[in-house]
């Protein structure tokens, strides 16, 4: 079985089937990341497509300095951030914020996400930086080193973001381990 690096090399050399294989290797996890970041199936599909098209166009720019999957996820996270910014701009253009509140409840667009709806809703309350770190480390099982590479931040920052993200989740989910615990200030 070919490694990602070998597949990229083959694709850059003109082998289209290598790209298909690359997609098969990563598309569901990229889609999962985007869906949990964006909380909307259509937007997640758009972001996934945009990410792979970026890969299609810029595969030759991958020079193997980091693991291919790290590079891929970095592009994916940035694509999701872009989507979120665009959404924010659209909302700013369309309606005053008070007329367009964030729906804290899981919608139909999240169908096929089997995680507990309350956890998904709590996840949506996290700032994008915390959310991406929690998804990559806790939900997708990437190492801290890889997540740091993907997010282009130091490992300590990843730890901090995951820690704070979990803390907010615990608070929003009702103090899972000790109902009497004192809520904390979660500013970074």
């Amino acid at each position: 079985m070919l490694t990602d690096r070998e597949l990229v090399d083959r694709f850059v050399a003109g082998d289209q089937s290598a790209f298909t294989q690359l997609m098969q290797n990563h598309e569901d996890r990229i889609f999962g990341l985007c869906l949990r970041m964006l909380r909307d199936r259509t937007k997640a599909l758009d972001a996934t497509q945009e990410m792979f098209l970026t890969l299609y166009r810029k595969a030759d720019k991958y020079h193997g300095k980091s693991a291919f999957s790290t590079w891929l996820y970095r592009v994916a996270v940035n694509t999701c951030y872009d989507q979120m910014r665009k959404e924010k701009r659209k909302k700013a253009d369309a309606l005053p914020a008070h007329l367009d509140p964030v729906d804290p409840h899981v919608t139909d667009e999240m169908r096929a996400v089997e995680l507990r709806p309350d956890i998904e809703a709590a996840l949506a309350t996290l700032q994008p930086e915390f959310r991406s770190a929690v998804i990559l480390v806790d939900m997708q099982g990437h190492s801290l080193e890889m997540a740091a590479d993907m997010l282009e931040v130091p490992i300590g920052t990843v730890k901090s973001r995951v820690f704070r993200g979990r803390r907010i989740l615990a608070s929003n989910l009702g103090n899972l381990s000790n109902p009497s615990a004192t809520p904390r200030d979660d500013r970074e």
Partner: peptide, 14 residues
Amino acid sequence: VVHTLLAEAPPIAM
């Protein structure tokens, strides 16, 4: 606890 909850989330697929 939160880590365990999140880690047990089933993977998402198209």
